[in-house]
Design a protein around this nucleic acid. Sequence first.
DNA 1: TAGATTGTTAATCGATTAACAATC
DNA 2: TAGATTGTTAATCGATTAACAATC
Lengths: 208, 208
Amino acid sequence: MRDIPPATVARLPAYVRALEGLLADGCVTTSSEGLAARSGASPALVRKDLSSLGSWGTRGVGYDTAHLRDQVVAVLGLTTQRRVVVVGAGHLGHALARYPVFADRGFAVVGLVDADPAVVGTTVGGLVVRPVDALAELVASTGATIGIIATPAGPAQEVCDALVAAGVGGILTFAPRTLHVPDDVDLRAVDVASELAILAFHDRRRRA
Amino acid sequence: MRDIPPATVARLPAYVRALEGLLADGCVTTSSEGLAARSGASPALVRKDLSSLGSWGTRGVGYDTAHLRDQVVAVLGLTTQRRVVVVGAGHLGHALARYPVFADRGFAVVGLVDADPAVVGTTVGGLVVRPVDALAELVASTGATIGIIATPAGPAQEVCDALVAAGVGGILTFAPRTLHVPDDVDLRAVDVASELAILAFHDRRRRA
DNA sequence: TAGATTGTTAATCGATTAACAATC
DNA sequence: TAGATTGTTAATCGATTAACAATC
């Protein structure tokens, strides 16, 4: 297996979901075209992506749905459960701590942290909210490798630094600001207000 | 102003935020390098992006921070308030309906809809939750142009179709599945479980 | 065999970086 | 004028699409 292009990696989760949908529909084999329709990619792109993973299709037939699903899941590293800590127990933190889709995909939220003393000690989704200064200990004791930042913009960089110091390898942030991490830490950012702003741009164009 | 590349549009909200941060720090002028540090782009990319908007910098000096902020805000179409309806009043819908950053950016959540009769009629963030079949009327009466899908995967395509039929021009979905919209509707997807899966991929690589 | 569909190569397209002349 | 920094062009890089030979 050679290096997998980042754009391909970003599509793999959609392929896994498409394959599970096809499995649920009883499709034993799938073509690149069928997979494309369900995943939003083009058939050519599906074939190219899968071939960069090593390719497990049969010419003239297609892909074995269950087998391909297992292979893509393995490539993504979803066979091992990943432990996740969430920082910020506001509305978003609550939503994340109880999001059932995480469990379906092998992620377990094992810790929830908040800066507000009034929130610390309350229970959310079976987890007792811990204070921010318990973060390092929490990551260490749970073996969490991924941190989620669900705080306002203000404390986000500080929280990010604390997660890095605690040793997580990947961070997903929802805070509306740019964050900086060392090269060996993987950062992904979801910015809801920016998404709306991009929609607003096209909206304006459409009406102009 | 020529056509603006999609990759550039996607960075404009980060530039707006960077510029507002610089303004708050009292920086009257900014260089592409300063803007790059705050926005996460490279200095060359900042200059290229801004020049594709028409360019308002001064060689040897930099950009007028306040003026540039106003220009980028105008390009994004954020000078007019946009009205947004949210479908799904679960944890995520709650979080979105009250997210203060939307208001800061000129977005107003004007409607909240849910399929659960037990939730319909309750008040969230000053909005009374409406039933799903009130969606078209709600969009029409409020003049909403953007819809947010905060439902589980199951009903998401149906909700998406209903938003399109109701006449919104842009949709932001959080549902973990691929959605299909007509060409004249703009769709952006945030998929939290996929983001974690991508982090898991790199995590696996790091430990391998 | 004939039809279908993959895997891969070549062509295209778009985005980023590097470099530097223009110019404040 | 000298130093700084933009705006733009050319070079590079990566991603997508098109096309088709391989082959089930």
